[in-house]
């Protein structure tokens, strides 16, 4: 690990200022992803600004009946919150489908959104990777790509956003609150938070340098049957090959977002309109522009079949 200096900020505005003030600075929250990458020297910040004292660890009701989740709320706390379990079941389910109990106790809401890809070529510093070293090429293209993306990828990068929590937040139409080094706050819809790779895969989110996530807001509950179905190589503690977050209403309408296949949680309102016609129609719309590799073409039928399983489960729950 490269040497670095460390400070604890006292307010969100001070934290944002501190990171902007020194080149090569980074925020640290739970640290479960950042420290892993620092040990491999994929990340090498010269200065860390710890955000644990910013009092961003609360879950509070909003005026319009939703919930405001502080950026520093841990994955375990969020998944176990009584209101989340009751009204946003898809979010609890998605969180407990990811990582391990130990990691969820430390990993935070904002950190989870910012976790970096698990592409093996990103992790292997001997390989070309446009995300790790812009302009160096992509060893994953033409390499071993079974886990990697099938849609929304580019000629520069075929990595996926690996998380589960964000897929549920996308289906719930969550939004992300931030503060920048000038003290300006703004709200970013989940739909716009993660970027498609394009020609700049090293730029992964809509955040500007020094901009700090302060909270994630969930709109008021929409009812329906909440399902998170994750397909992976092990029964536990593995990244998704494909995952489906869904909220299905009694009349068969609903929302679905797919994880494990793209640079961001993959959701299209035009595809959701196809829900009454079945999984094949939804999947065909979602994956119309898919460009799978030889290794990961299996994800196309896997998306359709996972969607079908989710819709069947929703039907069973509804009928019960």
């Amino acid at each position: 690990m490269k040497p670095f200096t460390y400070e604890r900020a006292k307010t969100p505005a001070d934290a944002a200022k501190a990171v902007a003030a020194r080149p090569g600075s980074k925020f640290i929250a739970g640290g479960t992803n950042l420290l892993d990458l620092m040990k491999l020297e994929i990340e090498a910040p010269a200065h860390l600004v710890d955000v644990q004292d910013l009092k961003l660890d609360r879950i509070e009701p909003t005026q319009d009946g939703g919930l405001r989740v502080g950026a520093f709320v841990t994955n375990t706390t969020l998944a176990a919150d009584e209101r989340v379990r009751r009204d946003y079941g898809v979010l609890s389910r998605a969180i407990v489908a990811g990582a391990s109990g130990q990691l969820r106790n430390k990993a935070t809401t904002a950190g989870n959104l910012l976790q970096r890809t698990r592409c093996p070529y990103f992790y292997d510093t001997n390989q070309a990777c446009n995300k790790r070293k812009p302009g160096s090429g992509c060893a994953a293209i033409g390499g071993y790509s079974r886990q990697l993306g099938i849609v929304g990828t580019s000629d520069a990068c075929i990595a996926t956003y690996p998380g589960d929590m964000a897929v549920a937040m996308r289906v719930l139409d969550a939004s992300i609150e931030t503060i920048d080094p000038r003290g300006q706050t703004r709200t970013i819809p989940m739909a716009d938070f993660h970027r498609l790779w394009g020609t700049t895969p090293h730029i992964e989110t809509a955040l500007t340098p020094g901009e700090l996530i302060t909270a994630v807001t969930l709109p008021k509950p929409i009812g329906g049957t909440h399902i998170y179905h994750k397909v992976r190589d092990r029964a536990s503690y593995a990244y998704a090959l494909v995952s489906v977050a869904a909220v299905i209403q009694r009349d068969g309408s609903g929302r679905v977002a797919i994880g494990g296949i793209a640079p961001k949680p993959w959701r299209m309102e035009t595809a959701e309109a196809q829900l009454p016609r079945g999984a094949k129609a939804v999947s065909a719309t979602l994956l119309a522009d898919a460009k799978p590799t030889h290794d990961n073409a299996f994800k196309l039928p896997l998306v359709e079949r996972t969607l079908a399983a989710v819709m069947a489960e929703a039907h069973t729950v509804k009928g019960a």
Binding site: E41, E43, A44
Partner: peptide
């Protein structure tokens, strides 16, 4: 050292 994005300009 690996080529790391965001590395400090001076050696810390």
């Amino acid at each position: 050292g690996a080529d790391a994005q965001g590395a400090a300009p001076a050696v810390a």
